[in-house]
Design a binder for these strands. Structure first.
Lengths: 235, 235
DNA sequence: CGGTATAACCTGTCTAGACTGGTGCCTGAA
DNA sequence: TTCAGGCACCAGTCTAGACAGGTTATACCG
């Protein structure tokens, strides 16, 4: 046993995750008893793995019928600041991008005010179509101070912008944001491959770095029916 | 009896939630074995309850030491639980309602599970068109346990449901919820006086009371272009 | 052919133990 | 007085069953 032994329920969970990745929503996965026979573990152990995937929304279980792959809904946990890439990884999908534009340009008054930059400053603007497993799911507009323009040299199609920022010493730390719903315009619709008028969830957020300085102003237009935003509210 | 028919792990969970509500972060709660003795259940059953609270971030467990109340992870200042009435007041508008229906009916499986009620329980259901300065801005579906049915005697057109709940000794304390964007259906459109297909922001939230017990399950469909949800995210 | 009873499955819930690795306190020896 | 060992306790992991309640397919009966 040179390999560090992982808990058996993790082995079952890993199996189920790969199963889910290779099946379509609504398809059945193995039943508890099948899995317990397959892995030679007790049913309680199988249930521990399955329950976690239920909690993540990856599968659903119907008493008397079986366990099935759930509709892919991206659950975005609002209490945590995560990049799109992290969010996708959590969900077992591969994040990608098609860069629509990446340039230096004059900042708008809004942008400069939000980022605490001097009037007529130049900003770095990256516009990307975000992909989950190759499928378009969001349109992202990122505005950064010119001091972060080095990110334009990164591979913006395949790597994380937040990762690139971290290598520049800028650590995305917290954010405030707003959410509204809008109807897709013609351009939105074409990029996201939906009908014009489809409901989109628009998130605008301002991210600050480890020193509390404004770092990034982002507007992201998500497909409304594929993204679920999770919120926790306290009195 | 209602008490008898709820799963034992829910009874333990309920106990822990009220425990958490009355303790401060870092305080220890009962150990697994204490709880299993207290409720006369096996430790697996206790663990099932505890694990869910760990997943929710309410408690944390340290092997060899015990189980403790966690730091509240939400920035309470920012992510506030507000009633529609409070939200409107904050914006300087007058909240109102048109009651579409207010009745006792059998709960759906979803509702009963969310509210931790026994199968086939009756629930209180209030459906209202919410008005801001007399203009329709949202459609609200509130589901409460039958124990709160007294709210049906209140003036639901002009007063706050949450206020009414407070007079019943049920204090809305925190909530978890989800947000998605959808297109308005025919009925939505007519009630909200918009075109069918208009983008709506759908909020589903489960509110718990001061003891951590599920109190209210609400779905609210907001006009997408009039409502902005403000969120704060921390790394 | 249509309806019903039954058996086979499925998940949910639960038990009463077991062993592991870790923590922390208390006691007794140096 | 200090420190090491032992012991009680803790959560993590896991077993091998059990029953309940729901679904579904099949086989049988009218």
């Amino acid at each position: 046993m040179t390999r560090k032994s992982i808990p058996r329920h993790q082995a079952v969970e890993r199996h189920l995750r790969s199963r889910i990745a290779n099946l379509r929503p609504g398809d059945a996965v193995e039943s508890d008893s099948e899995l317990s026979a397959l892995f030679n573990v007790s049913r309680m152990t199988v249930r521990q793995a399955a329950q976690r995937l239920v909690d993540e929304g990856l599968i659903y279980r119907v008493p008397g019928v079986g366990t099935f792959v759930a509709e892919p809904k991206v659950h975005r946990d609002m209490a945590r600041l995560r990049s799109f890439t992290e969010e996708m990884a959590r969900r077992g999908a591969v994040a990608g991008s098609r860069v629509l534009s990446a340039e230096l340009r004059a900042g708008t008054a809004d942008e400069l005010a939000a980022l605490h930059l001097a009037p007529r400053s130049t900003v770095t603007h990256v516009r990307r179509l975000r992909l989950a497993d190759g499928r378009p799911v969001a349109i992202e507009n990122v505005v950064l101070p010119m001091s972060c323009s080095a990110v334009l040299n990164e591979d913006l199609e395949h790597s994380s912008l937040h990762e690139a920022l971290r290598t520049l010493g800028e650590i995305p730390t917290s954010a405030t944001g707003t959410l509204v719903a809008v109807n897709a315009g013609a351009e939105d619709a074409e990029l996201l491959q939906v009908e014009p008028g489809a409901a989109l969830l628009v998130e605008e957020r301002l991210i600050v770095n480890q020193n509390g300085q404004p770092l990034e102003k982002t507007q992201t237009r998500y497909l409304g029916d594929e993204f679920v935003f999770h919120v926790t509210l306290a009195r």
